[in-house]
């Protein structure tokens, strides 16, 4: 099967899942009503509200999250030449979680906010963006003094571990209500992004994806090693800077708006590499975009347990779906490290 055929199938799959995500939920919208609502003939205000005010923004957020996390996972795996790398190896999620923990737990403990409800959505988004941005900036400053990419990887891990330690201290001293709000944030939520936030989210990740695509050539040659990249005319410093920016836009943007969502970013690139049997990023990036969207939409459908009132945390579903994929890939390849 040609790559074009494979991409077409994945896009078709993502489209079907997109419609399914709109239709399925606690209330299942019959396909005829769904069609009527879309074509503007629908006269069911209740269903209309559900569809356009809740499910459509949520599905669009799911698509954005799936695309952004998968592509940033792909470029991190390539840059670090490490199969276990993902969107969060640079410490984006721990940076964001520190920011969010500070506003949810810190402000409430200090009595700046009497109740959690006064911490607005925008405050959380801003806090997460500042947190991840600061951590990434620190890493970038240190990495200008370091040549070896593995050192940067280790520094990223160390930075995020120490940030997590600070978050633990905050959690330890936090009042129960705040703690619960924070823990719920860490479970991820695709349903909180609406209206103008949705356009900002999409703008952010579109910019990230374009930067990733423009670095496709550099990413390709990176797999031959940095020496080859340098002697083929790649400016390593600029390349790293662009990759850092792309990751912070993609993974940072999603984490700010939806909380940390795990495993999609690690699993999807492997799945796509296996499916297309290539290392060419001009094929892998489009592949991961739509595969990521499909997997995320599927996770969202599962999380909403169609037909029931209950919603499961999205982060648990992506983990439960993603881990078997990673295990399957590891067992299939046996020597995963050979691939990098």
């Amino acid at each position: 099967m040609s790559n074009t055929a494979k991409i077409t199938i994945i896009i078709a799959l993502a489209l079907v899942l997109f419609v399914a995500d709109l239709v399925l939920g606690s209330i299942i919208i019959p396909l005829r009503d769904f069609y009527n609502l879309l074509s503007g003939h629908g006269d069911e205000p209740f269903l209309k509200t559900i569809l356009f005010n809740f499910r459509l923004p949520r599905a669009l957020t799911a698509v954005a999250a799936g695309m952004a996390l998968s592509v940033s996972g792909l470029i991190m795996q390539t840059v670090f030449r490490n199969p276990l790398a993902g969107p969060y190896v640079l410490g984006i999620s721990s940076g964001a979680s520190l920011g969010v923990a500070l506003v949810i737990i810190g402000f409430q403990s200090f009595g700046w906010f009497s109740e959690f409800s006064t911490v607005s959505n925008w405050t959380i988004i801003t806090a997460a963006l500042i947190g991840s941005g600061l951590l990434l900036m620190m890493l970038l400053i240190v990495s200008t003094r370091v040549n070896d990419i593995m050192t940067i990887l280790i520094l990223g891990i160390l930075f995020s571990s120490s940030v997590s330690a600070i978050v633990s201290i905050l959690q330890f001293f936090s009042p129960e209500g705040a703690l619960k709000s924070y823990v719920i944030w860490t479970m991820g939520n695709l349903g909180n992004v609406t209206g103008s936030q949705l356009s900002i989210l999409w703008g952010t990740i579109t910019a990230g994806i374009i930067i990733a695509l423009l670095n496709g050539k550099n990413l390709n040659i990176m797999l031959l090693g940095e020496l080859y990249a340098k002697t083929t005319g790649v400016n390593i410093f600029l390349f790293r800077l662009f990759i850092f920016i792309a990751t912070s836009l993609l993974a940072g943007g999603i984490t700010a708006f939806c909380g940390p969502i795990g495993f999609i970013g690690i699993a999807v690139p492997h799945l796509v590499r296996l499916l297309f049997k290539t290392t060419n990023h001009f094929i892998l990036i489009p592949g991961t975009l739509f595969m990521g969207a499909a997997v995320m939409l599927f996770s969202d459908i599962v999380a909403h347990l169609p037909g029931s009132d209950r919603i499961l945390p999205i982060n648990s579903i992506t983990a439960l779906l993603g881990i078997p994929i990673v295990i399957w890939i590891i067992l299939r390849n046996r020597q995963l490290s050979q691939l990098f």
Partner: peptide
């Protein structure tokens, strides 16, 4: 140190990168 999943012609084609446009 080469990535095992690259194809031969792909590796050779990377030699043209200094001559091609941004998307290669």
């Amino acid at each position: 140190d080469m990535h095992a999943m690259m194809r031969v012609h792909q590796v050779v084609s990377y030699g043209r990168y200094p001559y091609t446009n941004m998307v290669g």
